[in-house]
Nucleic acid binder design. Structure first.
Length: 436
RNA sequence: GCGGGGGUCGCAUAGUGGCCAUUGCGGCAGGUUGCUAACCUGCUGUGCCUACCGGCACGCGCGAGUUCGAGUCUCGCCCCCCGCGCCA
């Protein structure tokens, strides 16, 4: 969410941003928010005055008791004082309503976009920035990746459906190894760049989850555990960012660079088109994620670095890809700027999203109340400000695996293992059976 | 899951209905002293009002209740520690 202090001080910045997004409903919210905030502060002053009055009355009673005033005099004071709590309660109810209203708007107003975010009303407005590698043409004999996996005994889809429903899969043999190799490759590369590998809890409480995602996601994306205040994580970004909730981080401890490794669970897996069978759109996959918490002045540089890391992985896997900057209409409410890497999928003759890198600036930090300390602790110039949070996919195994299979399929029907993964493959250089 | 103990301002501690949340350590600022240091004083949770000096409110794991008044009493919940049970 936006920092209410920021909204108060810069209403025109927020307004211009909403205009850029062409979001009329939220534009009207802004005025209501500012209005509610002004009322809230006015009422707070009033109810604090009431409390101050109560404290005075209470003190008078105490002194009367101590100085042994007559019981009737004390009772008189008590009867008088007894009027005050009711008034306080009334004022509190009103301020609570306003607080809820303010929170409602703040939780739904989007982050302020970076000026470089391209304008557009949906994903068709995303801007291609660059492309890498030579794309391959569709050869007549290339099977859909799901079929290929199944034929080669490397995956099971119907048995997965039998026990778990649609959108699940068993990976077997060399495919299972390849999946783990992709993860180890990403983890090792990131470790060398200063990211600490972390395996997080796969479930989070509602309160913590509200800090990192938009409210719509609770209805659409996340699995709720029945009977418990727990949601299965949709990405390790969520626990790894939320883990610093309500903390003040010393300036000297920034940046925090984490490499999240987890399974990800998603209810909505989108429209199915070509090659429905397979591992591209699934309810569960594994992902290695880059997370950074840093000072605001450093976040744009980090955003580029993390994006460069993502591109580097796909270069090392020798998978042609393009980079797009997500436009105003497609970016969602949390990120200030977002890049996707889209890998070439030969079967579809299309680029498809495989990674996503977002600078969330102070938006998650404000919700989670994650600050950092500027100036020495206890000194006069000590200040606290919200950190900036960033997340970027390194490897999402399901999608990367499909990209590897399709881009490295040989004439003989086998898939050659990219060189970068060989150290993790027990000497296996190609997977799948040769077609006769 | 059951039983017992606990959660107080960065850390450590005191506080069983009114004493404006105690003390120590650490940190910051200033001062004093012949100085790789000691000592003294002040400051060291959050929000709001104010041009400023400053003031007020909130804050003792979270929430509700009793009361004129709650760190302190009552109820619900969360987390940590010890023991038992169960278990990969």
């Amino acid at each position: 969410m936006l920092d209410i202090k920021f909204v108060r001080a810069n209403p025109s910045v927020v307004r211009e941003d909403l205009e850029k997004r062409q979001d009329k409903e939220k534009l009207s919210w802004l005025d209501e928010l500012l209005d509610a905030d002004a009322q809230y502060r006015k009422l707070t002053v009033e109810s604090e005055a009431l409390r101050a009055g109560r404290n005075v009355a209470t003190k008078a009673i105490n002194e009367a008791i101590k100085s042994k005033k007559s019981p009737s005099e004390i009772d008189g004071l008590k009867i008088e004082a007894a009027q005050i709590p009711r008034k306080i309660k009334q004022a509190e109810e009103k301020t609570r309503d306003l607080e809820e209203k303010i929170r409602f708007y703040l939780m739904r107003l989007p982050n302020i976009l970076h000026e470089s975010v391209p304008f557009g009303k949906d994903e068709s407005g995303n801007k291609v920035l660059r492309a890498w590698g030579k794309v391959r043409k569709l050869s007549a004999q290339m099977p859909p990746h799901g079929e290929w996996l199944e034929k080669n005994g490397l995956a099971e889809f119907s048995r997965a459906a039998k026990i778990s429903g649609a959108g699940f899969y068993f990976l077997k043999g060399d495919a299972a190894l390849l999946e783990l190799a992709l993860q180890r490759f990403a983890i090792d590369s990131l470790s060398k760049k200063g990211f600490t590998p972390v395996t997080p809890p796969f479930m989070m409480s509602r309160a913590a989850y509200e800090g990192v995602t938009s409210l719509d996601d609770f209805e659409k994306v996340m699995y709720k555990i029945d009977g418990h205040d727990a949601y299965l994580i949709a990405t390790s970004e969520h626990p790894l960012t939320a883990m610093y909730k309500d903390e003040v981080i010393g300036e000297e401890n920034l940046p925090i660079q984490l490499c999240g490794v987890s399974t990800c669970f998603r209810r909505e897996i989108g429209a199915h088109g070509l090659d429905t069978k397979g591992i591209f759109r699934v309810h569960q996959f594994n992902k290695v994620e880059q997370i950074v918490l840093c000072k605001p002045q450093d976040s744009w540089e980090w955003h580029e670095k993390m994006q460069a890391n993502a591109e580097e992985f796909f270069q090392k896997l020798d998978i042609p890809h393009q980079v797009v900057s997500i436009c105003t209409g497609d970016i969602g409410i949390v990120a200030a700027k977002k890049y996707d890497v889209e890998a070439w999928m030969p079967r579809e003759q299309k680029y498809r999203e495989v990674t996503s890198a977002s600078n969330c600036t102070g938006y998650q930090a404000a919700r989670l109340n994650i600050k950092y300390r500027i100036g020495k602790q206890g000194s006069q110039d000590e200040r606290k400000e919200f950190v900036h949070t960033l997340n970027a996919t390194a490897i999402a195994t399901s999608r990367a695996l499909r990209a590897v299979i399709e881009n490295h399929m040989q004439e003989d029907g086998t898939v050659s293992v990219p060189k970068a993964l060989l150290p993790y493959m027990n000497g296996i250089e190609s997977i799948g059976k040769k077609t006769a």
